[in-house]
Each structure stands twice: as structure tokens, then as C-alpha cells.
């Protein structure tokens, strides 16, 4: 059983703050580190793995400082994001070399076990340079597991994997978590994280935005105000009908060619079917609004041409969590 504790950790590079005052505790089981690209996930994992000093704050594993502490690697297995390995050697030689670097008593047995765990025994005799992305990922995994560490850190392990490999790795991580290991992996895809992570830590723009089980995180994301862009054959009438609904909190009539967010009432005439106007709707109750919109349209005899969620990028979903 091992626990990683980050206490008020910040890291900046020159003027850029990559990680901003993050406090979190990662215990046994699978934890997902979720956030859009550039949110500071890699920086955080580098600090947890002892490859980067926090500019302020501390990272400890069971009370022991991680930074500049080579002994910590007896208890940490690291799967880096980058693919490069010593690829002039075979998978077997490389995993064996990792076992020897750990000064294990029986390096051959440890290497065999690790390669069996990742199901790479068939291809272990081939040069790493001939491996597919998924195979490389599994060999990386084997090098991290060879010394049977209680803590496993994985930086974007699912990147570039096909669905079958993804599923296999998910099962593997889940099994390690069930064994009582502390497994932390980063990802920018909520679906990936919620399938296997018992707890989720959300990072946005260097800040720790949310923390909890996937149900909580999903609820936070769904219950935020949603934005829609709607086109119909009578935008003005539809706007009037929508604002009368309690599930909507704001409606804006915009010219289709106007810059986004610019008020343009009166510029665009209503009722035209050439798509020159549109509605921006803010729904306070996402589920209620989605249910009521078709009923509204039908009641007022308005034809809907287009209903688009305006703002569904992961970035904006997460930004909302920070802005709360």
C-alpha cells in the first residue's frame, strides 16, 4: 500500500505557470488524471516520478520526498509518454536490462513474469524497432512492472492504441488497482478515465479543478449551463417561445455572419430561410431543455433546421469547472 501526496505543488517555467497550487492525495486503486492537452498533467506526473522539482510545495511517497531520491524508484514504476526506447535491442533484452538495472535477485525470472503479464512473450525475441505502437506500449509497461512496484505512473498510456489494445490495457490497469497498487494514469478522454478509474482528478490550465468518483465528475460536467446554436424558419418567434421556458436562461438572436457573441438584433430579419440568422441559447437545465425544444417548435409550428451544442470542447467543459 502506497500513497502519493502532493502538497501545494506549483511548477513554473520562466513566466509560464504549468502547475498551480495543486494539493492531492493518490492512494491505492486506479486514479485517472483527466484534463485537456496542456493542462499540466505531464508536468504533474514528472514531478510525481521525481523528474522535475516542484517550484514550490512538496511531492512525497509515504512521507518520503520523491525529488532527487534515486531509492524511490524501487517503489515506483514509470511508463513515459514518449515512445523512444533502446530500440536496437529485443523486447526481452530490454526488459531484462531493466530488471538488472533494478539489481533484482533473479532478473530473468522477473523479466519473464513482466513480459507474461503484458502478453508479449511471443514477440519478445524481436527488435523493439519492429514493434507496433501497442507492442511498444506493452513493453514500456513491462519495464515499469519488472520490479513489482506498489506505485505505477502512466503518462497518456492509451494514446495511439487501437480499441482492442485499449481494452486490454484497461483490464490490466484495473487488475493492478484491484491488487492494491497505486495506479495513476493521465488522459484527456473522459470515457477512458471513467471506465477504469475509481477516482478522478481533473486538471485544467494548471489547476486542480475537481476531484471525485466518475459519477460526481460527470454530474459536474452535465449540470453546467449548456450553450446551443439553433437555426429555424422563424428564429424570432422561437426565441420568444424559448425564453418563456424555465429550462432556458438566455436567448440571443444573432446574424449568421456577425462575429460570434455580437448582439445583432435588428440587423438580421427573422423568418428568412437563407440561414442569415441564428439563436444562441443558454440552457440552465440541459436535460429539460433538450426535452422541451421539439415540443415548443411543434406547438408554434416552427421548423428546426439545426440544433448544435455550441461549446462542447473538452477545454470549455473543464474551464467551467475551474470557473465555478
Amino acid at each position: 500500500m502506497a500513497t502519493l501526496v502532493l502538497d501545494k505543488v506549483s511548477r513554473w517555467f520562466g513566466n509560464v505557470v504549468a502547475v498551480n497550487d495543486v494539493t492531492m492525495t493518490i492512494g491505492p486503486g486506479v486514479t485517472g488524471l483527466l484534463g485537456p492537452n496542456g493542462a499540466g498533467k505531464s508536468t504533474l506526473i514528472h514531478m510525481m516520478g521525481g523528474f522535475l522539482a516542484p517550484s514550490s510545495g512538496t511531492v512525497t511517497l509515504d512521507g518520503e520526498t520523491v525529488w532527487r531520491n534515486e531509492g524511490i524508484y524501487r517503489r515506483i514504476g514509470l511508463v513515459p509518454e514518449r515512445e523512444a526506447m533502446y530500440d536496437v535491442v529485443t523486447g526481452w533484452e530490454f526488459v531484462l536490462a531493466n530488471a538488472r538495472l533494478h539489481r533484482l535477485d533473479e532478473p530473468e525470472a522477473a523479466a519473464r513474469r513482466a513480459l507474461e503479464t503484458v502478453e508479449m512473450t511471443d514477440a519478445q525475441g524481436r527488435d523493439i524497432s519492429t514493434y507496433s505502437k501497442g507492442m511498444k506500449q506493452r513493453v514500456k509497461m513491462a519495464t515499469a512492472l519488472v520490479h513489482d512496484p506498489p506505485v505505477l505512473l502512466l503518462d497518456e498510456p492509451f494514446n495511439g492504441m487501437d480499441p482492442r489494445q485499449r481494452l486490454q490495457l484497461m483490464r490490466m490497469l484495473q487488475a493492478m488497482g484491484d491488487e492494491g497498487r497505486t495506479v495513476l494514469f493521465s488522459s484527456h478522454i473522459l470515457e477512458e478515465v471513467e471506465q477504469i478509474a475509481g477516482s478522478i482528478e481533473v486538471m485544467v490550465a494548471g489547476r486542480h479543478a475537481a476531484s471525485g468518483g466518475f459519477r460526481e465528475i460527470r454530474r459536474l460536467m452535465i449540470e453546467r449551463p449548456h450553450q446551443y446554436t439553433i437555426r429555424s424558419d422563424n428564429d424570432r418567434a422561437l426565441a420568444a417561445a424559448i425564453i418563456a421556458e424555465p429550462s432556458a436562461s438566455g436567448v440571443q438572436l444573432v446574424a449568421a455572419h456577425a462575429t460570434e457573441g455580437t448582439m445583432a438584433q435588428g440587423v438580421a430579419s427573422t423568418g428568412r430561410r437563407d440561414g442569415s440568422s441564428a439563436l444562441h441559447v443558454q440552457a440552465a437545465d440541459f436535460a429539460g431543455f433538450v426535452r422541451v425544444l421539439p415540443q415548443l417548435a411543434s406547438r408554434h409550428n416552427i421548423r428546426l433546421y439545426e440544433v448544435t451544442p455550441a461549446d462542447e470542447s473538452l477545454e470549455s467543459v473543464f474551464s467551467y469547472l475551474v470557473a465555478r
Binding site: F51, E70, Y73, M85, Y86, L101
Partner: peptide
């Protein structure tokens, strides 16, 4: 350059 030195550094070895 390619980051593979991480496999040496993530070991309990004297630098």
C-alpha cells in the same frame, strides 16, 4: 534527446 534515458534514471542507480 529522445527521452529514453528515463529508463536509466527511473532506477535506484547512482547518477
Amino acid at each position: 534527446d529522445d527521452g529514453s534515458i528515463v529508463y536509466l534514471l527511473a532506477k535506484p542507480l547512482s547518477r
